[in-house]
Nucleic acid binder design. Structure first.
Lengths: 336, 336
DNA sequence: GGTGGGCGTCGAAGCGCTTCGATGGAGGAA
DNA sequence: TTCCTCCATCGAAGCGCTTCGACGCCCACC
C-alpha cells in the first residue's frame, strides 16, 4: 500500500505538505502542488479512509435509512436512494445503507461509532420514535417527511397541501364546479403520516377559494372498494364532474367503476391524482397527476446535510413545489 | 466521546484487555470480561470505526453495486439489497451503496481507500468491463450473474438452465407433448446476459429428454408484439398446448392474445413463466412460475464474502435451485 | 539597511484502536 | 521444593492521516 509518506518522499516534501496540497486547507505554492499531484498519480496514491476518519473526525459517509413497510412504492424509494448516492458523490461522500428494520439502534450505532457524519431518514411518521434519538445525536440529520413536532430537526418533503390545491385549481380552471377527494384509508389519517392530512387541507382550501362544492372521502385501499365509493360519490353529488384521487391502489379500479356507471373519463368526469408517474401512465386512461419528486427530494436532502456539515444553518422545513403533469384524464366541463 | 482507555480505567484493566475482551482474540477470564462488559454498558462505549479500521485493516463494510439499467425489475433489486444489508448486519458488517453509474472508478476507489473490505456486484454481463478490475483488486468480491470468463472470480445466480428445465418438466408431467419457449428479445442473447441462453439450453434439453416437440422464439419486449407471436406459434405448431415465457413485459399481453385466438388458459393451453412472483400473481390468470430468489441470492452472496474474508475457500460458482410455484395457468392436457 | 509580516513548508503530536511480545503468577510434574 | 508450562494480563508500538505551532525566507516599507 502506498501511503502519504511515500508520496512525500517521492515529491521531496513533507507529509503535511502533501496533506495540505490535497485538502487545500493551507496555501501551497503552485509549483509544489503540481509536483505533489504528479507523484500521487505516478504512485497511484489513495488516502486510507480509516486513517483519514480517525485524524480528521470526518468519515465522509452519510447514512440513508430506507423504509420497508408495505404500502410504500418501491420504485420511488429506489429513485430516491440513487439520487442520494449520486448527489453525495458529487460532494465527495459515500452512502451507507440502513434498513428501517434495524431501527433506532442502527442509527445510534453508526453515529456513535463515527462510521457516518450525518444521516437521512425516510418515511417519517407524525410521532416517529426516532425523533428524540435524532435530536440527541451529535450528528446532523435530515428527515424526509414531517413529524408532528419537528423542533430542532430539519425536514423536507413535497408540499402536499399545495399538491392538493394544484389538483383542484386545475379542475376549477377547466370549469368544474363540483369536486370530490378520494383519499387514503382512514387509518392513515389516524396513524399519522402527515402528508395525507395536508392533501385534504389543500383540497378543501382550494375548493372553498374557488367556491366549488366539494367532499372528502377517506377510502380503503382495497380495489374491491372502488365500485361502492364511485356509487356513493354520484349519489351524494349527482353533479360531480371532477375527482382528485390520493390513493394509489384505488386509482385504476375507480376509473373502471366510473365507466361501469356510465361516466366516460374525461368526457363526463375529469380525474387528477397524486401518485407516481408510472402508475399514472399505466392506467387505461393516463391520469393527469402530481408525482412525488423523489430524485429532487434526494438531492435536496443531501445538499441540506452538506450545508449543516459545513456549519451553516439551513431552514427547518423545506417544501418542494408540486408539478402537475397533464395527461388524458382531464378535460373542460361539458366537452364532447 | 468515551474511548477504550476510559473503559479500561473504569474496569481497572489495560486497554488491550478491553480490546481482547471485545474481540475474543485472546482468552480473558470470565470475571474480567464481566467487569469490562459492565463498564462498557455503564459508560456507553462504542469503538470508533475509523480507529478500528486503521488498526485492524478491516472496515467491516461491504460495497454493494446496484444496477440502474432499464429493464431491470426494481423491486427485485430492492429485495436483494435489503437482504444483503440484513445478512451483512448479522455478520457485524455494514453496506455501502454504489451505483453502476460510478462504474469501475467507484469500485476501485472504495477498495483502494480501504473503505470497504469486500464487494458485491450485481447485474454482471458476459463481457463485463469490471472483470479485470475485480481480479486485480486485493479485496474479495462476489458477482451476481455469470460472465463468459469467470476464472478466479466468485459468482452466484439462479440456475436458469434448471429453471428452464423445471418449466418444461412440469408441462411434460401434465401430459403436454408440444411446447414452445417465448424468450427474451434477440439483442439480449447477443449482448450477453448469460441467463437468457441458459434458459434456452434447459428448455431444449428437457424437451428432448421428454421427447416433446418444441420450438424457441426470441421476442421483442413490446406488448404489441404479443398477438403476432401467439399467431405464429399456433400456425407453426397447431398442436401446441404448453408455453414457457421468459419475457416479463410480454407475459400478460401474450395471455390476452392467446385468449383472443380462442384458447383458454389453462383449459386449452398451459403457461409457465420465469418472472418475479408479483408479476405472476398480477396477471388475470395467475401464472405458474419460477421466480428469481432475490432474498436468498443476497444472503448467500454475503455468506460467501464472509467466508472469503475469513480466508476460507468457496466454490467459484454457486447455482441456486429454481422453485416452481403452482398457480392457475397450468392444467393437465385435455382437462375440461 | 533594518524590521515586520506574510507565505509556504516542516516536524511532531496525536486521533482511538489492535496486536505483538513480555511478564507475572498459579498449578502441575518431577 | 524446584522448575516448567500455561493462562491471563499488561505495555508499547504503530496503523496512516490531519493539524497545530514553529520557522525560514522574501518582500515591502520606513
Amino acid at each position: 500500500m502506498v501511503k502519504i509518506t511515500d508520496v512525500a518522499r517521492h515529491a521531496g516534501v513533507s507529509p503535511s505538505t502533501v496533506s495540505y496540497a490535497l485538502s487545500g486547507k493551507r496555501p501551497i505554492s503552485e509549483e509544489t502542488r503540481q509536483r505533489v499531484e504528479a507523484s500521487i498519480r505516478e504512485l497511484g496514491y489513495r488516502p486510507h479512509a480509516g486513517a483519514r476518519a480517525l485524524a480528521s473526525s470526518r468519515s465522509n459517509v452519510l447514512a440513508l435509512v430506507i423504509p420497508l413497510r408495505t404500502g410504500i412504492h418501491v420504485p420511488v424509494v429506489m429513485q430516491f436512494a440513487v439520487s442520494v448516492v449520486t448527489t453525495a458523490r458529487r460532494h465527495d461522500h459515500d452512502v451507507l445503507l440502513l434498513t428501517q428494520e434495524e431501527g433506532e439502534e442502527g442509527l445510534r450505532r453508526v453515529a456513535d461509532t463515527a462510521l457516518v457524519d450525518a444521516m437521512i431518514v425516510m418515511d417519517v411518521q407524525l410521532d416517529d420514535p426516532r425523533l428524540p434519538l435524532l435530536r440527541s445525536l451529535d450528528r446532523p440529520s435530515v428527515m424526509i417527511g414531517f413529524p408532528a413536532e419537528a423542533d430542532g430537526l430539519t425536514c423536507i418533503d413535497l408540499d402536499f397541501k399545495a399538491a392538493g390545491e394544484l389538483c383542484v385549481e386545475r379542475l376549477a380552471g377547466l370549469g368544474h364546479r363540483v369536486v370530490a377527494l378520494v383519499g387514503s384509508p382512514p387509518e392513515v389519517y389516524v396513524r399519522g403520516t402527515a402528508f395525507a392530512q395536508r392533501v385534504v387541507q389543500g383540497f378543501t382550501a382550494a375548493a372553498d377559494r374557488n367556491r366549488l362544492a366539494s367532499s372528502v372521502h377517506p377510502c380503503e385501499a382495497a380495489p374491491g372498494a372502488a365500485a361502492a365509493v364511485a356509487e356513493q360519490l354520484l349519489r351524494e353529488q349527482p353533479a360531480l364532474t371532477g375527482v382528485v384521487v390520493h390513493n394509489e391502489p384505488l386509482l385504476e379500479p375507480l376509473i373502471d367503476a366510473f365507466e361501469q356507471l356510465g361516466l366516460r373519463v374525461p368526457a363526463d368526469l375529469s380525474v387528477t391524482a397524486i401518485c407516481p408517474d408510472e402508475l399514472a401512465e399505466s392506467v387505461r386512461v393516463p391520469i393527469t397527476s402530481v408525482a412525488l419528486p423523489a430524485a429532487e427530494l434526494g438531492s435536496r436532502a443531501v445538499e441540506l446535510l452538506m450545508k449543516k456539515l459545513d456549519g451553516k444553518t439551513v431552514p427547518d422545513a423545506t417544501l418542494l413545489a408540486p408539478r402537475l403533469t397533464e395527461r388524458a384524464s382531464t378535460a373542460p366541463r361539458n366537452a364532447p
